[in-house]
Nucleic acid binder design. Structure first.
Length: 497
RNA sequence: GGGUCGUUAGCUCAGUCGGUAGAGCAGUAGCCUUUUAAGCUAUUGGCCGCAGGUUCGAUUCCUGCACGACCCA
């Protein structure tokens, strides 16, 4: 593509011309003293006459987003991280060199402008330039000014261009930052300590998923990118850090779709001397705090075609009740593996007769119940067979003290009272090891050090993981996880220059 | 993994019932000192995703591949 693109070539030529004329290029000595957004909030309401009388003169810097030139004058829109402001350039107010430069500017160039504020005929706040400097020449043309960048593939691959022309992207990412900030605030207010545990694990554990494998050369050992921080966080509770949380990336070597990216952000937290019932209330409070802090109305949050009401208390739905009342299943289907299997197959689920009844019911739940859970709903009473890490219910040994939170049909969090019996944990590890030997790549490995930690004693503890990307999707009304991740994973294309 | 659709100028998109392509914006050359997608005149720009097949001839039809979007698993 070296010389093929004339648009780029033309801009390089302009840069060469500037250099020849002795102009400094890629200079960094222009120091702005104002931001466009601040100027708008300070002076938009002021009338033009008194604005000129006050003689407000500023230095701003930013990218040229619009360029309208006529003969001996013209307008530009200059954009910085706070917004855009119009700049008026006329021959009489600029030095000859600066006006020449102005006439050669392209949309996309990064410039510094020194000038004084006034209002145009139409009342728009504008800077009348008395000095213009080129800070960075943009060599590539920006997308079309009206439609912007529409191609989703290009938007994800060249997010920098997407950010320049589609303001909505930056707004979403700023909101993401505010959401995470609010979560952090809430946790700290509740006396949790933020920690960072290893991202590179010697053993796979803490969830059911295939890991990414990497290699440490000096030690000559394989390491796994973590699929969950769970086992390390619980070690900290053993050590007396009774309230800990971590907001960080997990990595799972799985397919990608609207709701899955191989690396994704989770908040996991653990609190000693509480059980899963505490987590239900705590989660409601957490969401209320976050929603308030970003200025949304908790009773009316738009997500796609759904309007979601986050008012407390949220619905609590027993797993089996859900299958009956929401899924419309008869008792005999729930108790009869043959019938459940037949129905699951009819629904196109990939199930087989080697699966347990509970596993098949989970598939039915996924197909028939989850899509109907629009307002926040805690599903509780999960069977032991599909909850390998959760503590058994004190009254009913067949179910666990576990819940999952669904909003708009999407699993947002998963939590439970932790298993702190080292004997039971050891057995479950051994069972996983067997599965792994049989070829189950998602089974965990035997973590002897974790067993040792449990033998020192893990207090009764409740723990939960919240999918941050999905929370951001819900609160920014995006149905694709790629729209809330700045650089989603994309396959390589070999036609890149 | 399966299905459907898409890939044409820097960008947004037309189009060719098979005869080597168009518009708008951007660019270039002019005119223009208050514009708001500025306007007016002229004009440059294409391996029509890649590879094969059918055909006198393929950007168009067929097959495969790559990448992407959506649906399903």
């Amino acid at each position: 593509m070296e010389e093929r693109n004339k648009l780029i070539q033309r801009r390089i030529e302009k840069l060469e011309e500037f250099k020849k004329q002795g102009m400094k290029i890629y200079r960094n000595d222009f120091l702005p003293d104002a931001f466009s957004g601040d100027l708008h909030s300070a002076y938009d309401d002021k009338d033009g006459e008194s604005l000129v009388k006050d003689n407000v003169c500023v230095k701003i810097a930013g990218r040229v987003m619009a360029y309208r030139s006529f003969g001996k004058a013209g307008f530009m829109k200059v954009k910085d991280f706070t917004g855009q402001i119009q700049v008026y350039a006329e021959k009489n107010s600029l030095s000859e060199e600066d006006f020449k430069l102005y006439k050669k500017l392209d949309v996309g160039d990064i410039i510094g402008v020194e000038g004084c504020l006034f209002k145009t005929k139409t009342g728009e706040l504008t800077i009348k330039a008395n000095k213009i400097v080129l800070l960075t020449k943009s060599l590539r043309p920006l997308p079309e000014k009206w439609h912007g960048l529409q191609d989703k593939e290009l938007r994800y691959r060249q997010r920098y261009v997407d950010l320049i022309v589609n303001d909505e992207v930056k707004e979403t990412m700023v909101k993401r930052s505010k959401i995470i900030n609010a979560i952090r605030e809430f946790m700290i207010k509740n006396r949790f300590v933020e920690v960072e545990t290893p991202m590179m694990h010697k053993l796979v554990g803490g969830a059911t998923a295939k890991p990414f494998v990497t290699h440490h050369n000096a030690l000559d050992i394989d390491l796994y990118l973590r699929i969950a921080p769970e086992l390390y966080l619980k070690r900290l509770v053993v050590g007396g850090m009774e309230r800990v949380f971590e907001i960080n990336r997990n990595f799972r070597n799985e397919g990608m779709d609207l709701k899955h990216n191989p690396e994704f952000t989770m908040m996991e937290f653990y609190v000693a001397y509480k059980n899963y019932l505490f987590l239900l209330d705590f989660t409601e409070e957490l969401f209320e705090y976050v929603i308030n802090s970003i200025g949304l109305d908790k009773t009316n949050i738009q997500f796609g075609d759904n309007t979601i009401d986050f008012s407390r208390p949220w619905k609590r739905l027993d797993f089996f009740e859900g299958l009956k009342d929401v899924g419309g299943l008869d008792d005999d289907v729930i108790k009869d593996k043959e019938k459940a299997l037949k129905l699951a197959l009819e629904l196109g689920k990939s199930v087989n007769k080697d699966m347990s009844l509970e596993k098949i019911l989970a598939e039915l739940f996924d197909a028939l119940v989850e899509p109907k859970l629009i307002n926040p709903t805690f599903v509780i009473g999960y069977p032991v067979a599909i909850s390998p890490l959760a503590r058994r219910d004190n009254d009913n040994p067949n179910i666990t003290e576990r819940f999952e939170l669904f909003i708009s049909g999407m699993e947002v969090s998963n939590g439970f009272s932790e298993l702190n019996d080292p004997f039971d944990q050891k057995e479950r590890f051994l069972k996983q090891l067997e599965d792994r030997k049989k070829g189950d790549e998602e089974a965990s490995m035997y973590d002897a050090d974790y067993i040792r930690a449990l033998e020192y004693g893990l207090p009764p503890t409740a723990g939960e993981g919240i999918g941050i990307d999905r929370v951001v999707m819900l609160l920014t009304n995006h149905d694709s996880i790629r729209d809330v991740i700045l650089f989603p994973l994309m396959k390589d294309r070999d036609d890149e220059e």
